[in-house]
Design a protein around this nucleic acid. Structure first.
Length: 468
RNA sequence: GUCCCCAUCGUCUAGCUCGGCCUAGGACACCGGCCUUUCACGCCGGCGACAGCGGUUCAAAUCCGCUUGGGGACGCCA
């Protein structure tokens, strides 16, 4: 197969969202799987709404997800001369014409058409106009054929046929002289030698008219593959009201990029019954043939499950690095006890679905004293339990070392001395040391905390239970 | 409204290309049990779908048609 070239071309009028990220992923995987080239282009022709902040955000998202590109980023605003020349070429060849209709006139006609149940479509008022009034603003329209059909074989959907009567003469250059999306996308895809256009489903309707422009520009038509949309739980187009949609907000919520990538890949694509895929596996196995045709609902629970899977299996050192900012976000300083970080990660990786959750669960390790849960204190740090806590303190003090084994022996000794069962001993101690009733295994927690901190917390708890 | 697209468990999906191997498989979620010092993890089990109708055929989730439902597009946005 000839060299495959694909592109991801977001517009910087918003952050990179879940849907855009999946489009980027499919392009990336398709390029890598086929040894092709992945071009990154920024479609910033809407100068009113495009911002540098969004450009930065999109690039940061791409990098975080691991979608490295081979060429670009190209900015359309820096390619205006090319577009202008192409518009002129079309004008010279009679394939485009100037239209002097005002936006107001167009709006009125559109409204009327809608009201009468017709498809709102440009009526061709200026189609045959040859005069060139001085100083009157105009747009340039691409002349579509009067009759016939356009058929393209979508690599995902199969053949799609549209009657050209459905198409109107679209604007390719605004009255301020800037080109529009449907035109620049074609000019750029031609100029950049794009062979496969993989994009969102919402562009199928644009495809026929774009094909017309490829032909008008005398260029070969690329292959198209339209990826189904991602829907919210109510089956409507995914948006903010369905929860977080910005890719980078997932980093802040403590998700691992491999979880997002894995989830996005499986939303609309499959490979038998396999659920877990590394990026390399995705590259090896990804083909357009296995992309589904139906829109899919974004399921946050499954993403969470994948995230917990990747937290369980990630390398400890990496987790330590990733956990730090989440602790800091909680107002904690991980560097007061950097030595506890590795143990914390090992203790919590099996019971955390996100890094943010891990940070808040393990917060007591990085505070001077735990934040006591009043209900837990009332239930377990009672006067009745004071003797028990004192016994624990005594045995821990007497313990020759503070390893897991030593701590467990001390607890056994307490059980023997008080005649209490493990459950009765563990909960008061757990509350004393962590502030709550839920934590990893008790001895692990005590060892990670160290003898000094453990004893300190136990003594404070003892005082509390005295008051109770 | 017009045009385009889509349709298997609540959700993501396998199967559909080359009809029989499907009393429809897996995963998330949910429910129950086991494990257990709490919470998790893990393990075992359960619930649960071929949208409807008609056709083709010895045989249809798989092919065809219609209906219904859903989504998208109709911008001097992308």
């Amino acid at each position: 197969m000839a060299d495959i070239r694909v592109r991801f071309a977001p517009s910087p009028t918003g952050y990179l969202h879940i849907g855009g990220a999946r489009t980027a992923l499919f392009n990336y995987l398709f390029a890598r799987h086929n040894g092709g080239t992945f071009v990154f282009r920024i479609e910033d022709t809407d100068t009113q709404r495009s911002t540098q902040e969004y450009v930065d955000e999109i690039m940061a998202s791409m990098k975080w997800l691991g979608f490295s590109w081979d060429e670009g980023p190209f900015f359309q605003t820096q390619r205006m001369d090319l577009y202008r020349a192409k518009v002129q070429q079309l004008l010279d060849e009679g394939k485009a014409y100037r239209c002097y209709c005002t936006p107001e006139e167009l709006d009125a006609k559109r409204e009327l058409a809608m009201k009468e149940g017709r498809k709102p479509k440009y009526d061709g008022a200026c189609r045959e106009r040859t005069d060139h009034p001085e100083g009157v603003p105009y747009v340039v329209r691409f002349r579509a054929p009067d009759e016939g059909t356009i058929t393209f074989n979508d690599l995902i959907k199969g053949p799609v046929t549209v009657d050209v009567a459905e198409l109107d003469d679209i604007i390719i250059q605004r009255s301020d002289g800037t080109p529009t999306y449907n035109f620049v996308v074609v000019v750029d895809d031609i100029d950049m030698g794009i062979t496969h256009v993989i994009r969102g489903d919402d562009h199928v309707n644009n495809t026929p008219r774009q094909i017309l422009m490829y032909q008008g520009l005398g260029a070969p038509v690329p292959e198209f593959a339209h990826v189904p949309m991602i829907l919210g739980a109510d089956k409507s187009r995914l948006s903010k009201r369905h929860g977080a949609t910005a890719v980078m907000s997932y980093e802040q919520m403590g998700y691992l990029p491999e979880a997002i990538v894995n989830y996005l890949a499986r939303l609309g694509w499959s490979c038998g019954d396999q659920e877990i895929f590394s990026m390399q596996e995705l590259i090896d196995k990804f083909t357009l043939e296995h992309v589904g045709r139906a829109a899919g609902v974004f399921n946050p629970e499954k993403l969470l499950w994948l995230n917990s899977h990747y937290i369980k299996t990630a390398e400890g050192e990496r987790l330590v690095t990733l956990l730090r900012p989440h602790l800091e976000r909680l107002g904690l300083n991980p560097d007061v006890h950097p030595e506890r970080l590795p143990a914390v990660v090992e203790m919590y990786r099996e019971r955390s679905k996100t890094l943010a959750e891990m940070a808040s669960s393990a917060a007591f390790f990085f505070r001077e004293m735990p934040e006591y849960d009043p209900a837990a204190v009332a239930k377990f740090l009672t006067a009745d339990n004071r003797a028990l806590l004192e016994s624990v303190i005594r045995h821990l003090e007497a313990s020759p070392s503070f390893t897991g084994e030593a701590v467990e022996q001390a607890i056994q000794a307490v059980m023997a001395e008080t005649g209490l069962k493990m459950g009765k001993v563990a909960q008061p101690v757990r509350v004393a040391v962590t502030g709550g009733t839920v934590s990893p295994g008790l001895s692990e927690v005590l060892v990670a905390l160290g003898r000094d901190d453990t004893l300190k917390r136990l003594r404070v708890a003892c005082d509390l239970s005295q008051q109770g």
